[in-house]
């Protein structure tokens, strides 16, 4: 088990290295000079050239990459080009906010998705089933920015129930924090909820048609026990997979939601660092997102083993 985790972690390193290389290459081909951008109204060619030198931007790209990688190994992500702040604390400031959002989105998705999927599977072919399918696909199809705007319009502008957006740390005002998280978490969670509902339904249907379920039924176990204790457990694997696939993307995928609701999280950091050409921050953010995708995948593998005792990792 531990060996398996270790092997997975080591095995992921080349991919992560490739990710860092890709993002590095990408930042360097982005048009627009960070020095000029940083100088803004005060830009002039001499000053910009000096600044580029100061920031080490005129060194060969491979040298820059090597230096960055060297720092990374020592846990040093460099300093932001924009305000000279160290990158790690910036990341640590933003990460909890986005994790909170992702957590609530996932919670909402599970609460909506799993029951909907189960109901649809049990009433296969009924109007309920079709209704769930349409709702689930709608959840997947509705653009985050549209849903976000609609919710703001309805709940904040029309009904005036919820402040339109912003963020308050939970330790400052828990009630307000939760209230403010509601709409963005729902916005972010709908797509996941849809996917979960679809996969729960399909995978449950498949499991229900298998022998051991029939056996359990034949043994006279109540339908409820059969479904919730036996079938659902076995149907969970594909569902966990799809959650894993989407959860990894939630961190970076919250870009739009955070934008619409003015939440100062990871997604905003991504967009801002692209627009400001803040390479060190962008590199770190993408690296962290990639690591989170990767870690979630490992976690999903471990969950398989927990759900299905037949799966063993040597």
């Amino acid at each position: 088990m531990i060996l398996f985790v270790l092997r997975r972690l080591v095995g992921g390193l080349p991919t992560l290295l490739l990710v860092t290389l890709l993002v590095f290459a990408l930042t360097r081909v982005l048009p627009g000079d960070p020095a000029t951008l940083l100088l803004g109204e005060e830009a002039n060619p001499q000053l910009a050239a000096k600044l580029r030198e100061q920031l080490g931007l005129n060194r060969p790209i491979l040298v820059q990459y090597g230096a960055w990688l060297g720092g990374l190994v020592q846990g040093d992500l460099g300093r932001s080009i924009r305000d000279n702040e160290k990158v790690s604390p910036i990341i640590w400031q933003k990460l909890p906010t986005s994790l909170e959002l992702a957590f609530f989105a996932l919670a909402i998705a599970l609460l909506l998705g799993v029951p909907a999927g189960v109901v649809a599977a049990l009433r296969r072919g009924s109007a309920t089933d079709a209704g769930v399918t349409v709702l689930a696909l709608s959840g997947i199809s509705i653009p985050n920015f549209f849903l976000g705007i609609l919710l703001v319009y309805l709940f904040s502008i029309r009904l005036d129930w919820i402040p339109p957006s912003g963020y308050v740390e939970p330790w400052v005002d828990l009630r307000k924090n939760l209230l403010l998280m509601l709409l963005p978490a729902f916005t972010l969670g709908t797509a996941l909820a849809g996917a979960i509902a679809r996969f729960t339904r399909n995978s449950l249907l498949e499991v229900l048609s298998q022998d051991y379920v029939r056996t359990a039924r034949a043994k006279g176990l109540g339908e409820r026990i059969v479904v919730w204790r036996h079938a659902l457990r076995n149907a969970a694997i594909p569902v966990v997979t799809v959650i894993g696939l989407q959860l990894g993307g939630l961190l970076g995928g919250a870009v739009i939601t955070e934008q619409v609701f003015s939440i100062p999280g990871f997604g905003r950091l991504v967009v801002d660092s692209v627009f400001n050409r803040d390479f060190p921050v962008l590199q770190a953010v993408v690296l962290i997102s990639a690591i989170s995708v990767f870690l979630v995948n490992v976690l999903v593998d471990l969950l398989y083993a927990a759900i299905d005792p037949r799966i063993r990792y040597g």
């Binding site: 982005l30 048009p31 627009g32 000079d33 960070p34 000029t36 951008l37 803004g40 109204e41 830009a43 060619p45 910009a48 627009f275 400001n276 050409r277």
Partner: peptide
């Protein structure tokens, strides 16, 4: 994007550019 806009401005690589002061 603003970064690209400034860059083009400095290089004179544009026809017309809406940018104030």
């Amino acid at each position: 994007e603003f970064g690209t806009l400034l860059d083009r401005g400095t290089k004179g690589d544009f026809e017309a550019m809406a940018l104030g002061w």
